[in-house]
Amino acid sequence: MNIFRILGDVSHLLAMIILLVKIWRSKSCAGISGKSQILFALVFTTRYLDLFTIFISVYNTVMKVIFLVCAYITVYMIYMKFHKTFDREHDSFRLEFLLVPVTGLSFLENHSFTPLEILWTFSIYLESVAILPQLFMISKTGEAETITTHYLFFLGLYRALYLANWIWRYHTENFYDQIAVVSGVVQTIFYCDFFYLYVTKVLKGKKLSLP
């Protein structure tokens, strides 16, 4: 466990909490892509099946459970509790465009051809593209609430910190998981454009709106 890994996990958790607090306080999930949140719930579900098969550490187990609970509460808020505020019209990304290639790729390129390992691989590939419906929604409406941009910032920061973690682990432990690293790089690239807008607009007190 290194500092990048811890900070990455904290950013990830913070992102999920920011989103939940935003929805809870405003009693609204306007501007949030329910599809992205369903994908994240699917990501955690398929990745953390090893909760039942292997014990890594108390930290690992507790964090996995918290992530799963947060993801499902978020989906519940969007599709059940505050469904009237959900902007279904603009959440129009076609999920099959992500799910079909991701499923295919997880069967083709994995560490071992076993059900649990294929599901883990599926979750890694899916996570790298899960934010696209959200980014698509923002590009469609042309704007995002400031708190939504904070959520995206911490989600992107988590990915960037994981890259630093892998560089660290490569040098100190000779650890290198090609599937995770390649997907992580792809995922981080998706946030670059957003990071630019976040720094140039949101941090200067302006609302994020696209020209």
Partner: peptide, 10 residues
Amino acid sequence: SRKVLKHDEL
């Protein structure tokens, strides 16, 4: 024997 993979990251 089958390789058991341990993924220790979240």
